[in-house]
Structure formats: C-alpha cells, structure tokens
C-alpha cells in the first residue's frame, strides 16, 4: 500500500486572493514520478508553487506527511529566474542546497562540501564543479540545479519545466538523471513540463491541469492520443 506524501483536500490556489485552481483533491504518493501537464496558462506552475508553499492556500488544506523543516522539498526553478550577475561556480550553487539544514551562524563545513560534491557527481557534472555557473550550457545548468535540490536531502523533488529550452540530447540526459533518482533512490518527483513525448516513457502518473482544476490518473489513460488531440491538436500527439 503506497504511503501518501502530500495530500490536497479541497484546495484553492491563486494570486492576490484570486483563485486560479479550485477544489483540488489530490494525493502525491511516496516514490511516485508524476508529470504536471496541461495547456499554457492552465495553472501548472501555480499548483507546483502551491505544493512548495510559495503561494498561500486560499481554501482547503495541504497536508505534508513529512517534516518539512527537517526535510524541505527539493526545488528546481526555471533557470531563467536566476540572475546571471551573481559570480558563482557550479559547486557554490549546489552548496546552496545544504543551507536548508544549516542554522544561522553555522558555517558550511566538510560534511556540506562532501554532500555537494556527491550531488554534483550524481548528475554527472563533477568535472565542472569549478566552472562559473553561467558559463555552462542550458542542460548543464539544469542538472546543477537538480544537484542543488538533491543537496537539501529531500523526500520530494519538484521541478518547473526542467527540459524547457535545452537541446534534445540534454533534455534526454536530464530525464535519465530524474528517472534514475526515482528508480534507484526512491525519490518522489513531480515535474511541470510541456514535452509529452519526453515524459511519457518515464512517469508513472500524470496530473492534468485544466479548466481551473486538476485530475490525476495513470500515464496511459491521461496521455491517450484522443485526449491529447482534443487539448493540443494533431501536432502534439506524436
């Protein structure tokens, strides 16, 4: 019997007290690999930000079945939201993930450095640790951000369009890393994406966000060709 990690009970989410999503009733189970899919502007990122605690819950209740203070969710934002003016190496960016468990005044120590190095290795980028973060390719930056999320030692990893704007090879490498983390480490993963073809073979279930609400179901049902055709048109079905 799978154990629930996050439960949404009649939840409404939105901005400035204006609900974008209403009456959501969903459960994210431990060890799941979930894709958040839906048309543009449907509220996928709103749901992701709600799960992260970045948006106030306008109604209902989100229950986290783990200690968020001890193990905060790992978060991979869209890399465009980070400002390239910061002079940071790839290693320094990953090290930031360890700040989750470091109280003020406790400096980064040997344990944190070892953890950051290990996380960078997990995503196959140990060799670029000293490189400036902004000099890396789009795909490498995204993997560094995944390593940063892993450095907070999360039970739940949430990613906002991790394969957007990267070339097909890099996108496949990112999906490889994610499916390995899910399969081998049992990490629960929820990702927002538009790339149906890329996620179809790896995700176990899909949360479909549309019309102000969201429903969850197995990948085969949720990504059935007739359903996709209905929403996106013929181009998206292949």
């Amino acid at each position: 019997m799978p154990k629930a990690l996050v439960r949404l009970d009649d939840v409404s989410l939105g901005y400035d007290a204006r609900a974008v999503l209403q009456h959501l009733g969903l459960t994210v189970e431990e060890g799941e690999f979930l894709a958040l899919l839906g048309p543009n502007g449907a509220g996928k990122t709103t749901l992701l930000r709600g799960l992260l605690g970045l948006l106030p819950v306008l109604g209902g209740h989100i229950e986290y079945c783990f200690d968020r203070a001890a193990s905060p969710p790992g978060y991979v934002p869209q890399r465009e939201t980070l400002d390239p003016i910061f002079p940071l190496s790839a290693f320094e960016v990953v090290l930031m993930g360890t700040y989750a468990r470091l109280p003020p005044l406790r400096p980064v120590g040997r344990r944190e450095r070892a953890l950051a190095a290990e996380c960078l290795s997990q995503v196959g980028l140990a060799a670029v640790a000293a490189e400036p973060f902004w000099a890396l390719s789009g795909g490498q930056k995204q993997r560094v951000l995944i390593a940063r999320a892993l450095a907070s030692e999360p039970r739940l990893l949430l990613l906002d369009e991790p394969t957007a704007g990267v070339d097909p090879g890099a996108a496949a490498a990112i999906m490889d890393v994610l499916s390995r983390l899910n399969r081998e480490e049992g990490l629960t993963i929820v990702l927002v994406t538009h790339q149906l073809r890329l996620v179809r073979p790896v995700v176990g279930a899909v949360i479909w966000v549309d019309g102000g609400t969201a429903i969850k179901g197995p990948t085969a049902t949720m990504l059935a060709p007739e359903r996709i055709l209905d929403v996106f048109g013929a181009l998206a079905t292949g």
Partner: peptide, 22 residues
C-alpha cells in the same frame, strides 16, 4: 560575514529561501 550564506540565499533565489523556511 557571519550571515553571508543567508544574505546570498535570499538575494540569489528568494523562492528557495522560502522553501527552506528561512
């Protein structure tokens, strides 16, 4: 100097700082 990691985190990635409950 003492709070440089906190200042860096809230300056570089405010959302992550919120997720970390800082």
């Amino acid at each position: 100097f003492a709070f440089r990691k906190e200042f860096l985190l809230v300056s570089f990635d405010r959302d992550l700082a919120v997720v970390f409950r800082k």
